[in-house]
Structures are given as C-alpha cells and as structure tokens.
Design a protein around this nucleic acid. Structure first.
Lengths: 152, 152
DNA sequence: AAGAAAGTTTGTAATTATTCTAAAGTTCTT
DNA sequence: AAGAACTTTAGAATAATTACAAACTTTCTT
C-alpha cells in the first residue's frame, strides 16, 4: 500500500507533499483529525499553490470566506501543520512569523518595503563550502534570505 | 591563521567599524551624543569582542554592572547603533531579536537547543549562482542561517 | 558661563503577536 | 449509543517591543 505518491508523471517536483492525495488523507496521515476547521484552513492554504501567510492573514481570509475559526485555532493549526511537515515556518522579521506552503528545498527573497516573500527555487541558489558545524552538532536546516529593496 | 586576522596591514578587515577610534568618537561620528548610558552600553557591547545579545540580556548586564539604564533606553540604543552601522540585527526566532557586534560580512550557526548564535566568517561560506533579483529590485543583504542541533 | 535649543532618558501605558486555560463541542472507537 | 480522546474557543495571560510626555543632559549661542 505504500506506493505513496505513485508519481504518475515521475513528478519529482511533486515530492513529499503528495499533492494528489485528498486533503482528508493528508491530515489523517499526519495524525490529525479532519475537522471542519482544519479542512477549511487546509484548502485556503494549499489549493492556491505556493504561498506565504501570517496567522493574521489566514484568519482574515477565513473570515472573508465566511468560515468561523478562532485565532487560537489558526495558531494551533499552523503549528500542527508545520509539525506534520505540511508547512514550513519562516522567520524574517522580528515579531512576525510566515508560514510557507512550499516545503521543498528552497530559499527566499524578502521585499523589505512590502514585507513580501518570494520563493527562490533550490536549484537557483547554492552554497559552496558550507563550513563544518561545531563538534557534535548536526545541520538540521540552512535558510538563506536575500533581502531586496526598491529604493536606496 | 586566517588572512583576515592580521588586520593591521592595510586593514581591509578593520572596516567601517574603526575599532581603534575611542568610543566617544564613534558615537559622535554616528551623530549620537556620547551620553553616560550610550557610553556604558557601548563598552558592554564592544569591549568583549564579537558577541550576540538580546535587549533583555544587555539590560541584565547593565544592571549587573551597576549601571542604571532603563529598558526603553536599551531598545533605543540598540536601534540607534544598528541604524549607525555599529550593530547588526539578526532575526532567527520569532519574538526575539539578536544584535550582533560583528558588522563585517559573515553568517551564522544557530544552535536550536540553546538559542545560541555563532559567527561563520564570510570566507567560510559562499553562495554560488545567486539568482537575479526580481525586476527593479536591488539586493540589500543576504543572510544565511545554518541551524544545528545536538539531538535527532 | 548663562540661557536657550536640541537631543536623551525614563517610568509607565499601550501595542502586537502569540500562548495558555478550562469549559464546551466534535470525532472516533467499540 | 456511550465513552474516550481529541479539538475548538473565548478570554485571560505573557512576552517583546514601542509610544509618550515629562524631566534631564548635552551642546550651542552669545
């Protein structure tokens, strides 16, 4: 049964996210009950394609979509999804967390004026000579943020 | 020894920071009056060599050194120093800002368990093929954070 | 050096983002 | 259907940071 993604078109790009599995399945596999709230948020998050949201933004969207969800649930859900590997948290500015629906290997442009994030595909950036991590430590992740501006 | 460590010769490494100028001069050049508070904080920050502090940490240190400085002034000062190029703000975790006394080109290891930051000298890491920034935008800075752990 | 102008510091209140809590509601198992 | 397990939620609580206006220092003028 574990022919997980069946990768119909050897979709290397599809990756772990398994975009073809219905959302209910993805939640179940993550050990999360498919509640009304989680399903709605998952649709808002994953159906439009790659995006970056803050908790407040997602809350507004949910409200706009006439979905009743408390802010506490927004936070719970974002963290549970992140925990489950469905989202990735990106820290760029003090006092605000972005959640990225693209969990594949990539980095970011950050437009300082607008607070907007844009993906840089993993192949378009590369680190040469990453230094050895200090004794006994393992690299868990490397984040690259390219800050860009209009002015200046 | 690394080539950068023998700074004296045509001190390209000394950089804007001008470590030999007395602190009073550095503040004046930054357009900041050398007040008792700023001088004390500057000494706490710059005399011990490269370091990473949060506002709360610096406040504790000042208290410990029997220097009366309000938390508001700590924040003001950290931001003014950053503005003046004497410090650099590093955002790594939501809800907490670090200020780095090393303003030369470099990146960071972040030890997730302890919330500790360590410098990675600029020469020890390199980006290959940085992508073109989106139309009309200029790269103002590139931040690389290598997150490391003990466990896992 | 005195007085005024300009810039700083500070206690406190206010804000912002986020987390906590316990009660009420939902989903799953049997 | 009933109970157990898990979720949601309103609202209180926390944490980090910023705002404000009065009191204070430093610098500038004369």
């Amino acid at each position: 049964m574990s022919k997980t993604s069946h990768a119909n078109a050897q979709a290397g790009a599809a990756l772990q996210a398994r975009p073809f599995a219905p959302i209910v399945q993805r939640l179940r596999q993550a050990g999360l009950r498919p509640t009304r709230q989680r399903l709605c948020l998952a649709r808002l998050l994953f159906e439009p394609g790659d995006r970056h949201v803050t908790a407040e933004q997602l809350h507004s969207e949910a409200n706009a979509a006439r979905v009743e969800v408390s802010l506490a649930t927004i936070y719970n859900t974002l963290h549970q999804f992140t925990e489950a590997g469905l989202l990735r948290e990106v820290v760029i500015e003090p006092g605000r967390s972005y959640f990225d629906t693209n969990v594949t290997n990539h980095h970011h442009f950050f437009l300082e004026e607008d607070g907007a994030l844009m993906d840089i595909p993993g192949e378009h950036i590369a680190l040469a000579q990453l230094p050895e991590p200090p004794a006994g430590l393992k690299v868990s992740r490397v984040d690259v943020v390219v800050r860009v501006t209009r002015g200046k």
